[in-house]
Design a protein around this nucleic acid. Structure first.
Lengths: 234, 234
DNA sequence: CGTCTATTTGAGATGCGTCAACCGTTGTGG
DNA sequence: CCACAACGGTTGACGCATCTCAAATAGACG
């Protein structure tokens, strides 16, 4: 049983497979931390904002992205319930975090966090691990945008979402996508049109169903996995 | 003075602009750590190898990359003198590290490192920062491969190299590239031919000189910076 | 019902990949 | 010392995957 399949997306969950279930200072602190609600399209933080807090998603979903001066946008990840966002940004945020559906967040002041980490090396290690997972996910995405075809990218995206669902005890083959085609396109380095066409192609090939544009049913999981063009060894 | 321009490439240097010059345990330890020499094309570690050590590049350069089962390769970064490689990989390495020129490395056993980090929160924080810098660099690269044109990618690559040179006190407008066109191509998500053609185009436009294929002279830095298509705000 | 946005679909353009030939440099062995 | 092979790089011709532009459709919401 090698690496537990370094999954894609931005999965900073604090409950990794290996980790203990004993509650840490961080988890206790998060449970008591102030709550914040943001509506769809509302920003959690924006590039340049002072990094006063990090957040844990309780419900909902958040898109994380960077923007070029001419408006081109790269979504670098999506944060789902359990994920931490805002880590690794000293001083000010280096990207934008925008809710893609109504979202509840736990807010943790960075000052308190740093202090806690200074006193408890285990907490520091947890944060380090969360960052390492995010780095792994970003590298996987880089591999996808740099080397894979449009179809492979969309398939990899769907499979990553499926795996995440499975890991959190939900259905691996039937799910709603919280993000728009534009979000997916900017995540995968494609255009809206190409993403849409690719979805329809997969549908026509009988690999997925699309009862609504936001709802995906995976029909032939094995076939999709074959198309993904996996990583070496594994 | 906002963020000090989150630069590209994989720059895990332990001497960030802001940081103190006081020697840390890590730096002391590194100074006494065992030395390893690797020749061009030799592996420092490969995907799947148990993570027994992390390394700091002393001289030379290392390419970090992932491979798909069909052989497609994504270079996720280059490590230069001062950079740490192997961080953030619990258990086994998730990528390949291959020298691209004769290289000297300091080797640090992860066991010792973890122990030190447990005792010294400052060291833990240093490692956290190093990882955060690597994440920032990877996101920048993601933005580049996902959104920029071939010319913009090559220009961004040259400017990133130039900035790194400048930061380490070398010439920002005249340097040797240690990596091959293939390495650059796999880094930027392009083909060898496109990279080569783009270099030639920049030369013909009078923006750079190429006395040898590995030596770059930046002639019109300002023009290149204009072509880069920078990030929002800044 | 009407407006607004998200998505799909189509037709045409193009940037980059593919395939192939050629060139320059390096190193090696006769 | 030269010939040749091996390798990295450049250049050209061509094809195609994806982008661009445009229009139609479908949902969502007041």
């Amino acid at each position: 049983m090698p690496t537990p399949h370094a999954a894609s997306h931005s999965h900073l969950a604090l409950q990794p497979a290996v980790s203990s279930t004993q509650s840490t200072d961080l988890e206790q602190r998060l449970a008591h931390a102030s709550l914040r609600r943001v509506e769809t399209k509302e920003f959690v933080f924006a590039e340049g904002d002072p990094t006063t807090h990090i957040f844990q998603v309780e419900t909902g979903a958040v898109a994380l992205y960077k923007i070029l001066s001419d408006g081109r946008r790269q979504v670098v990840g999506f944060a789902y319930p359990g994920d931490l966002i805002g880590l690794g940004a000293e001083g000010e945020h280096v990207m934008n975090a925008q809710a893609i559906k109504p979202t509840r967040l736990r807010c943790l002041p960075v000052g308190a966090l740093n202090q806690m980490a200074r006193q408890d090396a285990r907490l520091g290690f947890k944060l380090y691990e969360a960052l390492a997972r995010e780095l792994a996910a970003t590298r996987d995405l880089l591999l996808t945008t740099g080397q894979r075809s449009a179809t492979e990218r969309v398939v990899a995206f769907l499979l990553a979402f499926s795996r995440r669902n499975e890991r959190s005890g939900k259905d691996a083959c039937s799910f709603d996508l919280p993000m728009t085609r534009a979000d997916i396109a900017d995540f995968l380095g494609l255009t809206i049109e190409t993403v849409s066409r690719t979805f329809t192609k997969l549908k026509v090939q009988g690999l997925i169903e699309l009862p609504q544009s936001s709802h995906v049913e995976i029909v032939d999981l094995a076939a999709l996995k074959n198309m993904e063009g996996g990583e070496e060894d594994a």
